[in-house]
Simulated assay, not measured.
Amino acid sequence: MDEKTEGQLRVIRKVVAALQAADVSAWLFGGWGLDARIGRITREHGDVEFWVERIHAERSKALLLEAGATPLTTQPPEESCEYVWDDVSFSTAYFDRQSDRSFSQPLGRFSDWLFPPGSFGEEPVTLDGTPVLVMSVFGMLAMKEQFPSLRNGRPWRPKDITDMEILRRLAS
């Protein structure tokens, strides 16, 4: 395991510990979320991404700042917050629960993104010995599949296509 991956795993542990101690849930998604679902590290990752329920957005920022993360002002605050912790980049994006049990990100550039019921469960998986919440396979697949058709989406990258193939296999 290289130094960058070790640093990202340390930050995942720190974020989970800081938020869990205050009863704030955070779900991994993106490449690290997929690796957690698979149960092994499959590739190098550019960053670490978490979903946090919007009602906990400000509290999560305060908790992470208090624990040692440095928030950046690079993202629209209604959508997400990027941080640096021990020279590792990570972010928290915000979702809202809908009355039909689905989830969305109704504010900001990706307000047309919808996630199916069950996208944010309470059953952790283990990533490198650490129990972490992870966005569901169906939630991550919905994210990837919708992205090119979103108002502010963009075409799939080769790794997105590979990820969708893996997620579809996991879903079956």
Results as ranks from 00 to 15, higher is better:
51 W>E: 02
66 E>N: 12
36 A>Y: 03
17 A>F: 10
57 A>C: 08
70 T>M: 09
37 R>I: 10
146 Q>D: 10
73 T>H: 14
34 L>G: 05
143 M>C: 14
51 W>V: 03
163 D>K: 05
161 I>Y: 06
59 R>W: 09
132 V>S: 05
59 R>P: 06
118 G>H: 07
46 G>F: 13
20 Q>N: 10
39 G>S: 06
166 I>C: 04
67 A>V: 11
78 E>H: 11
77 P>D: 14
144 K>P: 00
19 L>P: 00
64 L>Q: 01
145 E>D: 12
143 M>T: 12
37 R>D: 11
22 A>K: 14
168 R>E: 12
142 A>V: 14
98 Q>I: 00
135 M>Y: 10
66 E>Y: 02
116 P>A: 12
19 L>I: 00
141 L>M: 09
78 E>I: 14
12 I>T: 05
19 L>W: 02
72 L>H: 15
80 S>I: 01
105 Q>A: 13
40 R>K: 11
16 V>E: 00
158 P>H: 06
70 T>F: 07
65 L>K: 11
119 S>V: 06
167 L>T: 03
22 A>V: 08
148 P>E: 10
131 P>E: 13
61 K>D: 09
84 V>H: 14
48 V>D: 00
63 L>E: 03
107 L>D: 04
28 L>D: 02
157 R>M: 13
158 P>C: 10
21 A>K: 07
37 R>M: 12
105 Q>N: 06
140 M>F: 14
124 P>Q: 08
141 L>A: 15
6 E>T: 15
48 V>T: 07
28 L>N: 03
93 A>P: 01
23 D>F: 03
117 P>Q: 10
91 S>Y: 02
